[in-house]
Simulated assay, not measured.
Amino acid sequence: PLVEDSNLIDLAAAQDRFKALETLYPGKVGLIHGRMKGPEKDAVMAMFQTGDISILVATTVIEVGVDVPEATVMVIENAEQFGLAQLHQLRGRVGRGSQASNCILLYQGNPGETATARLAIMRDTEDGFLIAEEDLRLRGSGELLGIRQSGVAAFRLANLIEHRDLLATARDDADLILQTDPLLASSRGTALKQLLYLFERDAAIRLLSSG
């Protein structure tokens, strides 16, 4: 959950969840969030690792760098708000020991088509490569020549997932052309510039020439 309540989305606050659980399990609950100082977080994690506390309420600050083999259950609130990569990272914080583990994804209301697809993928597989491919398919690849890091790539003919081997070959060929003909002055370079204009990608000429 988030550290503080938001007026825009109804998310459970980590501090409120901590207070509620502390009432039920006094002295057995810890809280970690990104606004805590390093020594404070380290102290809480040490208590969790030694078993002095058995429940840890945390924001996504625990997404990486946490290794507690004894942790066997994780509950992710408002899971529909997270991307696949982040859900996969969070789930990886449990099940690191020999005991069976479970990750419970909670969501509110009707999460929508894309969020439902993400939750279904998390339910059906633990394969990181498959999750990465599905994440790319759902989010989109963004722009190779631009600033968007997600969304549908504006390719006219290619699909990043279906044609990834061909695209790797095209990338290598483009690298070779830029090394041997950086100004696209040869007959092949001229043909490539015409293709870029044809597909309305002539801005790429300026971007590529800038390095």
Rank of each mutant, 00 (worst) to 15 (best):
151 G>E: 01
140 G>K: 06
129 F>M: 01
132 A>W: 01
146 G>Y: 13
152 V>Y: 11
131 I>H: 09
154 A>K: 14
154 A>V: 00
130 L>F: 11
157 L>Q: 11
147 I>A: 04
153 A>D: 12
148 R>K: 12
151 G>M: 07
131 I>R: 12
136 L>H: 07
149 Q>V: 07
151 G>R: 09
139 R>E: 08
123 R>K: 14
135 D>G: 08
131 I>D: 13
139 R>I: 04
137 R>G: 02
122 M>S: 10
151 G>A: 12
131 I>Y: 07
136 L>Q: 03
148 R>E: 15
141 S>T: 13
136 L>M: 15
142 G>Y: 00
150 S>Y: 08
145 L>D: 14
154 A>D: 14
146 G>V: 10
122 M>R: 08
141 S>V: 05
139 R>K: 07
129 F>A: 09
149 Q>S: 01
150 S>W: 02
148 R>N: 03
143 E>N: 11
145 L>Q: 09
134 E>W: 08
140 G>A: 11
148 R>L: 12
129 F>R: 03
128 G>C: 08
150 S>I: 08
143 E>K: 13
125 T>D: 02
159 N>M: 01
145 L>H: 08
128 G>M: 06
123 R>H: 09
134 E>L: 07
133 E>H: 00
125 T>L: 01
147 I>F: 13
142 G>W: 06
131 I>G: 06
144 L>C: 15
149 Q>A: 05
144 L>W: 10
